[in-house]
Simulated assay, not measured.
Amino acid sequence: MAADLQPRSEISFLETFFCSALAACLAEFCTIPMDTAKVRLQLQKKAPVGEGGHLPKYRGLLGTVATIAREEGLAALWNGIIPGLHRQCIYGGLRIGLYGPVKSFLVGSDLIEDTYLFQKILAALLTGAIAIAVANPTDLVKIRLQAEGKLPPGVPGRYSGALNAYFTIVKQEGLAALWTGLGPNIARNAIINAAELASYDHVKETILKIPGFIDNVFTQLLAGLGAGFFAVCIGSPIDVVKSRMMGDSTYRSTLDCFIKTLRHEGFFAFYKGFLPNFGRLGSWNAVMFLTFEQAKRFLFGAA
C-alpha cells in the first residue's frame, strides 16, 4: 500500500499531452498581449529616409501595447487568442508529449538518466518540427489576426474571427496556403523547441546539483526563465522572417524575405521586438513549465 503512495517517475503520453496542452494554453492566454506587440513590431517596416522622417508607429513593448489598447481597444491585445489556443493544444501538447518518448528512443530507456545535452537537443528538434508541421494552420491564422490593425470607419476587416479566417484563406488562397511559411516555421519552432526543452531540462538538472536546491516552484521558475532567454536569443531572426511571411504575402520565399529585410533594414531588423519577445517567451516559459510540472504532480501524481 505504501508503494502506491509513492510519486510516479513516469506518466503516459496522453497524460503528458494533456498536462502540456493545459499548461501551454494558460501561458498563451496570460502572455498573448506581449506576443501581439511583438508581431506588430516585427511587421513594422523601416520608414524611407527623406520622406517626412516620421517616427515609427510602434516603439518598444510598453509603447506598442499602449498604442494598440488606445487605438483599437484593450481586447485587441488578445487578437488571435482562439487560434493561439488551437495552436497550443496541438503544438504544445505534441512537442512536450513526444519529447520523452523520442529521447528514450534516441538513447535507450535504460540510459535515460545519462542523456547528453546534444541528445536532448536532437530530441527537441525532432518533436518541434513534427508538432509545428501539424499545427502550422493555427499559427498562420493567429499571425493574420494579430496583424490586423484598426481600419477606417466602414472598412471591414479581412476576417471576422478565427473560423472565418480558416475558411477565407482556403477559399481565396487554396488549402496549401494554410501551410504558408512552413519552412521558416519548422526551422523556428524546431530550434526554439530545442532551446526551450533542452535548456529547461539541462538548466534544471544543473540547478538541482547545487547544494540546497530541490525540485520546487523556485527551481522550475528559474529553469523556465533560462529556457525563454536561450529560445529568444537563438530564434528571433527566424521568428521575424516567419511573422513577415505569414503577415505579408508579397514575399516569394523565405530567402526572398530574409534578403529584402537584410538589404533594406539591416541585420538588427532580425531582432525587432527582442524585448517583447523575451518578455513574452521568458514569462511564457515560466508559466508553462511551472503549470506543467504542477499539473503532472497534482493530476497524475508524477514526481
Results as ranks from 00 to 15, higher is better:
8 R>M: 03
33 P>F: 02
45 K>V: 13
267 F>Q: 15
121 I>K: 00
100 G>M: 12
45 K>D: 13
174 G>P: 04
260 K>T: 10
108 G>Q: 01
68 I>W: 06
287 V>F: 09
69 A>C: 07
275 L>T: 15
189 N>T: 10
271 Y>V: 04
137 P>T: 04
48 P>C: 01
246 M>V: 11
131 A>V: 03
222 L>M: 11
262 L>M: 14
35 D>V: 12
122 L>K: 06
12 S>V: 00
98 L>E: 03
237 P>A: 06
53 G>E: 14
71 E>N: 03
255 L>M: 15
293 E>W: 13
268 F>Q: 12
183 G>F: 12
300 F>A: 00
144 R>W: 07
121 I>F: 07
204 K>P: 06
25 C>A: 06
170 V>W: 09
104 S>I: 04
247 G>R: 01
76 A>W: 01
14 L>I: 07
162 A>Y: 04
251 Y>A: 03
238 I>C: 15
110 D>T: 07
33 P>D: 02
119 Q>P: 04
271 Y>M: 01
40 R>L: 04
46 K>I: 01
143 I>W: 02
75 A>E: 08
268 F>H: 13
260 K>M: 10
173 E>L: 13
133 A>D: 00
99 Y>W: 07
136 N>L: 10
37 A>L: 05
290 L>V: 14
276 P>D: 02
280 R>W: 11
139 D>K: 12
297 R>S: 12
179 W>L: 05
261 T>N: 10
13 F>W: 08
185 N>Q: 05
219 T>Y: 10
236 S>P: 08
298 F>V: 13
252 R>L: 12
233 C>I: 14
138 T>N: 07
11 I>V: 05
88 Q>M: 11
281 L>P: 03
38 K>D: 09
229 F>H: 10
24 A>P: 06
146 Q>T: 05
3 A>M: 12
244 R>S: 04
163 L>G: 08
133 A>I: 11
258 F>K: 10
88 Q>G: 09
71 E>R: 04
293 E>F: 11
99 Y>L: 05
61 L>C: 13
113 E>T: 04
70 R>N: 02
46 K>T: 07
60 G>K: 00
94 L>K: 12
30 C>T: 12
277 N>Q: 15
238 I>P: 11
240 V>G: 00
157 G>H: 04
283 S>F: 09
261 T>F: 06
19 C>S: 03
8 R>T: 02
6 Q>V: 05
163 L>K: 13
51 E>T: 15
69 A>F: 00
267 F>K: 14
296 K>L: 03
292 F>N: 05
186 I>L: 07
187 A>E: 09
88 Q>I: 10
147 A>Q: 06
113 E>H: 13
262 L>Y: 13
234 I>F: 14
131 A>W: 04
1 M>E: 12
49 V>A: 15
